[in-house]
Amino acid sequence: MKILVTVKRVEDYESKIKVKPDKSWIVTEGVNCRANPFDEIAVEEALRLRDAAMPSEVVIVSCGSAAAATEIRSALAMGADRGVLVKFDGAGPQSLDPDAAARLLQKVIEKEKPDLVLMGKQAVDDDSNVTGQLLAEYLGWGQATFASKRESLESEEEKAKKPGIAIEGGTAKVWREVDGGLERLEVALPAIVTVDLRLNVPRYASLPNIMKAKKKPIDELSPVALGVDTTAKVRVLSVEAPPARAGGQKVPDVATLVQKLKTEAKVI
């Protein structure tokens, strides 16, 4: 089985994000970058599925600047087999929009012909939650978004590193996190699956694997070579800081709290 996993380089969610004074974008100087956390979950799932169905291959694809090779390399160090970087130099408001990313990924997938594509449900920079669904429609494939595991992340199944997605008879069976509960879908392969937080706990790269990853191949492609027009369909015009909340008031005890909720906030 061939599994393709998309990995986006994003600002570290632990960094302090500030808006630029000219409101054109956020301040990126001094902000660390890393792989989108959802994509790490997708990589982990791909590795578990591969190891359960050898011989199989896990290919990592990222679209972005040359620096995104770092995130591909991290996924290779987790255990993936090889990488593809679609190099695109626009940054800030000129970054790829999800639609352009989906169309680039479509071309890569048409070349690679994987059986399964695993992606994050959402990139924690643009928080769009659209790329996987766009890609599925462009390819004419089925999709299962927000893939989860029915068992908790502290369960025996997770400790045994079992995949949460079941591959059986040319289909993927997936539990999805939806409003009001969990839904089970069966989707014919090849398919797009986007992953949610509760699918697995990603592994750390071991030192020997980090060394091995240095020798794994990363192919480079470009939008021109793939014949994709990267003009954005959604353009960021400006960004601003969110409205600040004037919090901070402390109350000494429960009686004061209830009295304030009743007379000041008038919510009880």
Partner: peptide
């Protein structure tokens, strides 16, 4: 134009859909 939260709500963007 549309206003939407990015970076976990650390920034509020104004976006244009060009299609």
């Amino acid at each position: 134009h549309f206003r939407r939260a990015m970076w976990a709500g650390n920034a509020i963007a104004t976006v244009e859909v060009t299609t």
